[in-house]
């Protein structure tokens, strides 16, 4: 539009010498396009420099609490954290729900976030080791259960002979829930023969709710989240492999106070009550004390799983 106006102005000013005018106008047009292209190139370059994951994260200079808080949380925390976030209207959170190790990789790759919550201790340890986060807090635990499509068409009764010839889906050993599955199988002395090793526990659940798989090893929390789409089969001895959820402030967080506030919210009685509704258990004193978790905390955690 600007180019058009300039052309008209030049034409009226110069009058009869039509040829010259046209040439000059087109030269101007070309220059304008070149400028536009240059500014476009700058945009692209700038966009390339912007943080890959925290596009809308509050700038470091902004006053605390004014912007959005970016929370990187394990996929299993999606519903629980969503509700905790809604319970407090004073602060707004932006969540990235992914596999725990993916989140740590993203942080290591320079992604900007304020809070990291992992679904296992090993992954949080890795983040601490890489100095990506501050001191982590244990805020919830869960353990593995077998889920089947509702009605249990495969007649699966546990990690036993009932699984022979059935389609069992578990997490890949490379991811936390897969590590836990391997550990549990080791504890129970059974060999798992899955038809698929998924990347995320939610993918395992998806294979079960869709009826593709006869059974899947997921966490109590995933089973609770799936509601009546699945039947839950408790595994005797599953409480031996307790899975710890930890939360920490990301080092160099754009909004450290906000991060602390969110962590306090999660660990508050209200936050714990919300998490309990999604199948999480409260961490017990012994679980907090013992660094490696499992055996000691299991004996202290009251569970009803050893019934059948």
């Amino acid at each position: 539009m600007t180019v058009q106006e300039t052309t008209t102005a030049t034409t009226t000013a110069t009058g009869a010498t039509g040829r010259g005018v046209r040439r000059r106008a087109s030269a101007r047009g070309a220059r304008a396009v070149a400028a536009a292209a240059a500014s476009l190139a700058t945009c692209v370059a700038l966009a390339g420099c912007a943080p890959a994951y925290g596009g809308a994260s509050p700038s470091a200079g902004g006053s605390a609490g004014s912007g959005q808080l970016t929370v990187f949380a394990a996929a299993s925390l999606q519903k629980g954290f969503g509700e905790i976030s809604q319970a407090d209207a004073t602060q707004e959170e932006r969540f990235s729900f992914e596999g725990s190790s993916t989140l740590v990789d993203q942080l290591a790759g320079g992604a900007r976030a304020d809070v990291l919550a992992t679904a296992d201790k090993a992954t949080m340890d890795r983040a601490v080791e890489k100095k990506l986060v501050g001191e982590p807090t244990l805020f919830a635990t869960n353990h593995l259960v077998l889920v089947t499509p509702s009605g249990n068409p495969g007649k699966v009764t546990g990690l036993n002979a009932s699984l022979t010839g059935k389609r069992l889906v578990i997490c890949a050993p490379a991811v936390p829930c897969g590590r836990a599955s391997q550990k549990l199988a080791g504890e129970l002395g059974v060999k798992l023969q899955p038809v698929s090793e998924e990347q995320k526990v939610t993918d395992v659940l998806g294979k079960v709710t869709s009826g593709e798989a006869d059974a899947g090893l997921v966490y109590t929390t995933d089973a609770a989240g799936a509601g009546d789409k699945v039947d839950t089969v408790e595994i005797p001895g599953a409480e031996k492999v307790i899975n710890q959820h930890l939360i920490a402030t990301v080092n160099g967080a754009p909004d450290p106070q906000g991060a602390q506030r969110f962590i306090a919210q999660v660990t508050s009685p209200q936050g714990r009550a919300i998490l309990a509704r999604y199948g999480f258990a409260e961490p017990t004193a012994s679980a907090t004390a013992s660094p490696s978790g499992s055996a000691a905390s299991a004996s202290a955690t009251p569970t009803a799983s050893a019934t059948k």
Partner: peptide, 16 residues
């Protein structure tokens, strides 16, 4: 799904 040698192709292996 994703199982070594059966369904885990290169892109899935990379992801894992």
């Amino acid at each position: 799904g994703s199982l070594q040698g059966t369904t885990r192709t290169l892109p899935l292996e990379i992801y894992l």
